[in-house]
Amino acid sequence: MVPSEITTNLIVPLLTAGEFVKFLRYGILIIMGLYVVYAFIMLRQIDLMNRSFHTPLAGFFKLLGYIHFLLALLVIFAGILAI
């Protein structure tokens, strides 16, 4: 059975098409949430790396980490509004 047949024959009969699309969109939202967690861990990682090996670029890396985390938060908010 090919993936499109699985969708049509097995999943769609259990849910209406609208419910299934909603289910997929919530899946995208969960991925966005997981990315926020990853961005936060990266922020902590940059902090740990800077403490282990401090260079004049420490502040710049921290700034990049914060920009990355804030963008991840903005994306999930945009996702919530869009979905």
Binding site: T7, V12, T16, A17, G18, F20, V21, L24, R25, I28, I31, M32, Y35, H68, L71, A72, V75, A78, G79, L81, A82, I83
Partner: peptide, 22 residues
């Protein structure tokens, strides 16, 4: 799916921004 677009333009935009963030 069933005539409904999974990614409407707003969701598509969010997914594209997420991709570039990735």
């Amino acid at each position: 799916i069933g005539g409904i677009r999974v990614l409407n333009p707003a969701v598509m935009f969010s997914v594209t921004v997420l991709f570039y963030l990735f």
